Deep mutational scan, measured.
Amino acid sequence: MTEYKLVVVGAGGVGKSALTIQLIQNHFVDEYDPTIEDSYRKQVVIDGETCLLDILDTAGQEEYSAMRDQYMRTGEGFLCVFAINNTKSFEDIHHYREQIKRVKDSEDVPMVLVGNKCDLPSRTVDTKQAQDLARSYGIPFIETSAKTRQGVDDAFYTLVREIRKHKEKMSKDGKKKKKKSKTKCVIM
């Protein structure tokens, strides 16, 4: 069974824990209790493949930012979460993405942009803004509501699919490099 290491990042209060708990335990946590770091595991079937999701729910508070490099190193894919009623959390996505790329030393890291709290009427981040940002990053965008469960499975499952595509691409690139290195030079 394939294991996928997913990391949920975003500013404090955007609903990272609520999304994760909704996926794992099928219930909505409405009281806000700032996370330092929590880890969850769940076995699911995605596109006919049974897999184990190892999900790291991270601290959004700035005082825990020193811990970010460590979990970013171990993560295979990242859910970059903002709240649709919090423009600052949307603007912060850029910083999370840049930090992930720096730590992973790669421009090509599996990510999904997630606009959470889409059940709320007080939207300050337009869907088109988020779609445009995701398009500019070359990553999928999904709106979710941890409260109603809308888009929750889709967000995590899409990230797994992005990781699969990335692994497939990397193995193809690896095979191309191996083929090239088999060419021999004969000096007579």
Rank of each mutant, 00 (worst) to 15 (best):
T2F: 05
T2P: 11
E3Q: 10
E3H: 05
E3F: 01
Y4W: 07
K5T: 07
K5G: 02
K5Y: 01
L6F: 08
L6S: 03
L6E: 09
V7Q: 03
V8P: 02
V8I: 10
V9M: 14
G10W: 01
G10L: 01
A11R: 06
A11H: 06
A11W: 05
G12E: 04
G12Y: 02
G12I: 01
G13N: 06
G13R: 03
V14S: 12
K16W: 02
S17L: 00
A18C: 03
A18D: 03
A18N: 15
T20Y: 00
I21C: 08
I21D: 03
I21P: 00
I21M: 15
Q22R: 12
Q22S: 13
I24V: 06
I24C: 05
Q25R: 06
N26P: 01
H27W: 15
H27E: 06
V29S: 03
V29R: 01
D30H: 10
D30C: 06
E31V: 04
E31M: 09
Y32G: 02
Y32N: 02
D33R: 01
D33C: 01
D33Y: 08
D33A: 01
P34F: 10
P34T: 15
P34L: 14
P34V: 14
T35R: 15
I36D: 00
I36W: 00
E37W: 01
D38R: 00
Y40H: 02
R41A: 00
K42N: 03
K42E: 02
K42L: 03
Q43K: 12
Q43V: 10
V44Y: 08
V44T: 08
I46E: 14
I46K: 04
D47N: 04
D47L: 02
G48H: 06
G48P: 05
G48L: 03
E49P: 10
E49R: 07
T50M: 09
C51M: 11
L52E: 03
L52A: 03
D54V: 01
D54R: 00
I55V: 13
I55A: 15
L56K: 02
D57T: 00
T58S: 13
A59E: 02
G60P: 14
G60C: 15
G60M: 15
Q61W: 03
E62C: 04
E63N: 04
Y64N: 05
S65C: 04
S65R: 03
A66V: 10
A66R: 09
M67V: 06
R68W: 02
R68E: 02
D69W: 01
D69G: 05
D69F: 01
Q70F: 15
Q70E: 12
Q70P: 02
Y71P: 05
Y71D: 11
M72H: 04
R73Y: 10
R73Q: 12
G75V: 11
E76N: 15
G77E: 00
F78T: 03
L79K: 01
V81A: 11
V81P: 13
A83D: 15
A83L: 05
I84M: 15
I84K: 13
I84A: 14
N85D: 08
N86A: 07
N86F: 01
N86Y: 01
K88D: 15
K88I: 14
S89F: 15
S89L: 03
F90E: 06
E91F: 14
D92H: 01
D92F: 04
I93C: 12
H94S: 15
H94E: 10
H95A: 15
H95S: 13
Y96E: 13
Y96G: 01
E98N: 08
E98V: 00
E98W: 00
Q99T: 01
Q99K: 12
Q99D: 12
K101V: 12
K101P: 01
K101H: 10
R102K: 15
R102T: 08
K104W: 09
S106E: 07
E107K: 11
E107Q: 09
D108Q: 07
D108S: 07
D108T: 05
D108W: 06
V109D: 01
V109P: 04
P110S: 04
P110C: 05
P110Y: 02
P110L: 03
M111Q: 01
M111H: 02
M111A: 01
L113D: 01
V114E: 01
N116E: 13
K117C: 13
C118N: 09
L120E: 14
L120G: 14
L120T: 13
L120A: 11
P121K: 10
P121Q: 11
P121W: 10
P121S: 13
R123K: 11
R123D: 13
R123V: 09
T124Y: 08
D126C: 08
T127P: 07
T127A: 06
T127I: 10
T127V: 07
T127K: 06
K128Y: 05
K128E: 07
K128W: 05
K128C: 07
Q129L: 06
A130T: 06
A130V: 08
A130Y: 11
D132H: 06
D132E: 07
D132G: 07
L133Y: 07
A134N: 02
S136L: 12
Y137V: 09
G138T: 08
G138D: 09
E143I: 02
T144F: 15
K147R: 08
R149S: 09
V152C: 06
V152R: 13
D153W: 07
D154W: 05
D154Q: 08
F156L: 15
F156Q: 13
Y157A: 12
T158I: 14
T158V: 10
L159F: 01
V160D: 06
V160T: 03
V160R: 05
E162C: 04
I163M: 04
I163F: 08
I163A: 09
K165M: 07
K165Q: 05
H166C: 07
K167I: 07
K167P: 06
K169P: 15
M170W: 15
K172L: 08
K172N: 08
G174V: 10
G174Y: 03
K175T: 12
K175D: 06
K175G: 13
K177Q: 12
K177Y: 10
S181D: 07
K182E: 11
K184G: 10
K184N: 08
C185N: 10
C185Y: 05
V186Q: 12
V186T: 13
V186D: 10
I187K: 12
M188A: 05
M188H: 11
M188K: 10
M188N: 14
